[in-house]
Simulated scan of single mutants.
Amino acid sequence: MVIPAPVAKLAAELFGTFWLVFGGCGSAIFAAKQVAQSDNGATTFQVGIGYLGVALAFGLTVVTMAYAVGHISGGHFNPAISLGAAVSGRLPWKDVPGYWIAQVAGGLSAGLMLWIIASGKEGFERKGSMAANGYGDHSPDGYGLVSVLIAEILLTAFFLIVILGVTDAKAPAGFAPLAIGLTLTLIHLISIPISNTSVNPARSTGVAFFNGNGAPAQLWLFWVAPLVGGAIGGLIYVTLFAKEGSEDTQSELA
Rank of each mutant, 00 (worst) to 15 (best):
S191A: 15
F175M: 13
G229V: 08
L219R: 03
I190S: 14
G230K: 01
N213L: 13
S246N: 08
W220Q: 02
T249K: 00
F210C: 03
S195Q: 01
I190P: 06
L235T: 10
I192Q: 02
G234M: 10
P172F: 04
W220H: 09
A217M: 14
G234P: 01
G230S: 02
T185N: 07
D248W: 01
E247K: 14
P177Y: 04
D248A: 14
D248H: 14
N213R: 11
P193Y: 08
Q218W: 03
A173S: 09
N196H: 01
E247W: 06
G181E: 11
S198T: 01
G214N: 13
S195F: 08
I180F: 11
G245D: 04
A176F: 00
T185R: 06
S204E: 12
E244L: 09
L240H: 03
A208P: 12
I190C: 15
T205L: 15
L182N: 06
P226N: 13
F210V: 05
L227T: 03
A171V: 01
E244C: 03
A202L: 00
P226H: 15
A171N: 06
A225T: 12
T205F: 15
S204R: 01
Y237Q: 06
T197H: 11
E247I: 10
S191Q: 11
I192E: 00
L189H: 00
N200D: 11
L178V: 15
G214W: 07
D248M: 12
P216D: 11
E244Q: 11
P177N: 08
L189R: 00
V224M: 12
V228H: 10
V238I: 04
V224K: 04
I194T: 12
T197E: 13
V207H: 06
E247T: 14
D248Y: 11
A242F: 10
I192D: 05
I180M: 13
F241P: 06
V207P: 05
G234C: 05
A225S: 14
A208K: 06
I192R: 02
D248P: 07
L235R: 02
P172I: 00
R203E: 07
F210K: 04
H188P: 12
F210D: 04
L178W: 15
L227I: 13
E244S: 13
L184P: 02
L235G: 12
T197S: 15
L219Y: 11
